[in-house]
Every structure is written in structure tokens, then in C-alpha cells.
């Protein structure tokens, strides 16, 4: 038998005392990187004002909104190991909750946000419960199908603009006050939502719940063998992420003062996946960076040619080929080696 042969195998290997899975950016480094990003964003509006480019704030708000959506997708994709291809549907549902309520004279942001969270959480609960019966590529296909279903539902909803979408007459209010009417206040509200979502998800991923989710990502059979049914945990993560994406939709509707089914298209879902992968899955801060990089790149490449998407595609392929763990992985390799 094999006795003796494995004695030759490397004994003990190199002492590895660093327990953190995501390395630097999953530990304290992640909080530091996030703090830097948030601080830089916080001083953006006065700088934009000083250099006489107020439109910068509008662009930045849009980036914040997609960063929230990408962050929520990271919970599903990076921590839950569920490749969801219909995540934009939740953003769209949140945006439509604002527009539809507003068209009936309900402008209050709290009511709208509650409705948005409720609708997207419910949609996540129902579609997640069904989708999680499948695995692998079937899961991708079925989430894609549900996303498209939501998309075509909105296209067919002619009372609310159908294909053309719906323009908001004004931004949401709070207790009747137009608190979001200035671009700068909308920007800071979005930043606050992003920072809270980051801190909340960070705590969540380290909690009992998050630990089960991370364990399931690594080995679902092992988790069942010690007594955890992955389904309930994955579904809960899916619902939380759906609700958060819905909240991003509330901000998106306010930022654009317009909603349309295009927000929910599969291309949008694909872009969110790109942001998460580009930034680094399962790091939380990575997808925020991914959203910033993606949208800036999109803007920048659009200056050069109308075929910017091709350029973006090439860049992405290079990134996937030459980096592991996206931007977060790259930053980690640059700075993370200092660890003893």
C-alpha cells in the first residue's frame, strides 16, 4: 500500500500564519482602501465647483449608484458564489418604484425607498427560490431569463411609458422638502448610502451568516456535512442583494430623473458583472473600484471612437488574462507583499 510514499511529500510546507482568505483587501486593508475612496469622493463636489465643472458631480453620482449596485452583486457573486445574470432587474424595479409612485403624486423618498426595497426583495425571493434549484450554467440562464422577464414586463407596461420610459417631473422629497433637488445633495446622499452599504455588508460577511456563506462558496458538501443547508443562506443573500440593488435604483431614478426598461436589460446585468470581476470578486471594496473604473473607462473611450465597447472588451480580456482578482488583486500584489 501507499505507506511510506507520502513521507517524501513536502512536510508542513512554509509556515502560513495569515488566515485571511482575501488577503490584505479582505482584512484591514479593505477598510483602508474604502476609506480612501470615500474620502476622495467626499471632497469631490467642492473641487468640481472650484474648477468650474459642476457636471463632474452628476457623473460621480452616477458612478456611486452603480457602485452600490455592484457592491450588492458582490454579495451574490463573490460571497454567495451565485453567478446571477439578472441583477439589473432589481435596479430597474427600484427605479420604477420611484417613477410609478411619483406619477401618482407620491414623492416622499422614504415611501419610495420602502416600496423599492419591498418590490425588489420580493422579486429576489421568488426568482431566487426558483433559480437556486438549479446550478452552474443553468443558474446563469434562469437568472438571465427572470431579468429579461422583468424587462419585457416594463416594456409592455404602456401606462408607464412602455419602451419609451417615464420622465420624472421632479426629484423625490423628504416630508415635502425638496432635499434632493440640488445635484450636490443627491451626491452626498448617494455617498452615504454607499458607505453604509459597504460597512453593513462588511459586518455581514464576517458574521455567522457570512461565514456560512463563505464556507458554502468554498465547499457546499462540507457545509452540509456539518449541518448547514446552503439554500436558505444563499437565498437570504440573494434577497438582501436584491433589496440593496433596488435602493440603488431609487437613486438612479433621481439622478437621471428618468426611468426606462433599458435599466433592466441583460447588457446592464452583464456590465454589473464586469464591474465586480474587474474590481475583484468577494472583496466588497473591489467592486466599488470596479464600478468607478468601468464608468470612467466607458466615458474616456467614448471620446476616441464610437466603437468604444470594442476597446473596453479588449481591455477586459487583457485584465482577465494578466491579473488575478481584478483591481483589488492587483493592488494587493503591489502592496500586500510587505506582510511578514
Amino acid at each position: 500500500m501507499s505507506a511510506g510514499t507520502s513521507n517524501v511529500a513536502v512536510p508542513g510546507a512554509v509556515p502560513d500564519v495569515a488566515p485571511r482568505r482575501g488577503g490584505m483587501l479582505a482584512g484591514r486593508g479593505s477598510a483602508l482602501a474604502a476609506a480612501l475612496i470615500f474620502a476622495a469622493l467626499a471632497v469631490l463636489p467642492p473641487i468640481a465647483l472650484a474648477i468650474g465643472d459642476p457636471f463632474l458631480v452628476v457623473t460621480a453620482t452616477r458612478i456611486l449608484v452603480f457602485a452600490i449596485a455592484a457592491l450588492s452583486l458582490d454579495l451574490v457573486l463573490g460571497y454567495g458564489a451565485m453567478v446571477s445574470f439578472g441583477h439589473a432587474a432589481f435596479v430597474g424595479l427600484g427605479a420604477y418604484a420611484v417613477a410609478i409612485l411619483a406619477s401618482h403624486g407620491i414623492d416622499d423618498i422614504l415611501v419610495q425607498a420602502l416600496a423599492a426595497i419591498g418590490v425588489s426583495a420580493l422579486f429576489a425571493l421568488v426568482t431566487g427560490a426558483i433559480s437556486l434549484r438549479t446550478k452552474g450554467v443553468y443558474f446563469i440562464m434562469i437568472t438571465l431569463a427572470f431579468g429579461q422577464m422583468a424587462y419585457f414586463f416594463m416594456v409592455s407596461l404602456s401606462a408607464y411609458g412602455g419602451d419609451d420610459g417615464l420622465t420624472l417631473s421632479a426629484r423625490s422629497t423628504l416630508f415635502g422638502l425638496p432635499v434632493l433637488s440640488s445635484d450636490v445633495s443627491l451626491f452626498y446622499v448617494s455617498l452615504a448610502v454607499l458607505a453604509s452599504a459597504f460597512l453593513g455588508l462588511r459586518a455581514l460577511t464576517l458574521s455567522r451568516f457570512g461565514r456560512v456563506l463563505r464556507g458554502t462558496r468554498e465547499n457546499p458538501i462540507r457545509m452540509q456535512a456539518i449541518g448547514f443547508q446552503p439554500f436558505a443562506f444563499q437565498l437570504t443573500a440573494y434577497v438582501i442583494a436584491g433589496a440593496l440593488a433596488g435602493l440603488a435604483g431609487v437613486l438612479l431614478a433621481n439622478q437621471a430623473e428618468f426611468v426606462s426598461p433599458a435599466y433592466m436589460s441583460w447588457q446592464r446585468s452583464g456590465e454589473l458583472i464586469v464591474m465586480v470581476v474587474l474590481g475583484g470578486m468577494g472583496t466588497l471594496v473591489g467592486p466599488i473600484g470596479g464600478a468607478i473604473a468601468f464608468l470612467l473607462l466607458e466615458d474616456w473611450l467614448a471620446h476616441f471612437s464610437e466603437h468604444w465597447k470594442l476597446g473596453l472588451g479588449v481591455l477586459l480580456v487583457l485584465l482577465v488574462l494578466f491579473t488575478r482578482g481584478g483591481i483589488a488583486g492587483g493592488v494587493e500584489r503591489l502592496f500586500g507583499r510587505a506582510r511578514p
Partner: peptide, 21 residues
């Protein structure tokens, strides 16, 4: 610890760091 967690109360707890329990 995860195997202990599986039989020690609910794992639907979302805020406190599990590794410090």
C-alpha cells in the same frame, strides 16, 4: 468552530463577527 456554530443557536445573525464568539 463552524461545525459548533451549526448546532449552537441560529446562524441567521448578521452583525457580530463570528470568529470572535
Amino acid at each position: 468552530a463552524m461545525a459548533v456554530q451549526a448546532r449552537s443557536g441560529s446562524s441567521f445573525r448578521f452583525l457580530r463577527p463570528a470568529s470572535k464568539e
